[in-house]
Amino acid sequence: MTGVELWHRVQQFLFREARLLDERRLQEWLALYTDDAQYWVPYAWEQKSPKDHVSLFYETKSLLSMRIDRLERELSPLDSPMARVNHYLTNVQVDAVSVAEGAELDARAHLLFVEHRREEQRWFAGRASWRLRPRGEDFLIAAKRVDLLNADQEQGHLRFAVPF
């Protein structure tokens, strides 16, 4: 496979992940993750580890599963009415961790997350990175990290329901 093909396939995969979130197909979104996946949104700029500093999200697949289960039960006051979200990905790049066939890949992109809820539209910009595990022609997400430009901002985070 050429670099262009790989890049194209990875990008299509990331776009699909974004679309599943945007369309609230949350179980399908979760199915993109490996059972041992780590989902991390740091709370400090250039945070080294989730173990020595607080995080905005630091979750296992089971916790993500509870997160979306909660939204699907439609019991959360936060998500009533439901937020509408768009994930925009640009600057997609792929770094092969190893050249071996079937080896994991690292992908990164710039992320713009727009959320409309009731009378308010909020914008968050950040850098996303994924550790992807090939699965046939497709991929699974073994780890995802999103660094918000304003991760450490004092005010303005308010609250989040749908993941990035």
Binding site: V41, F57, L63, M66, P77, L78, R159, F160, A161, P163
Partner: peptide, 17 residues
């Protein structure tokens, strides 16, 4: 750390509500 992330972050399933 886990306690505050899970209970008190703006993305927490608890605090956000």
């Amino acid at each position: 750390l886990q306690f505050v992330n899970l209970a008190a972050s703006p993305a927490s399933l608890v605090a956000s509500d």
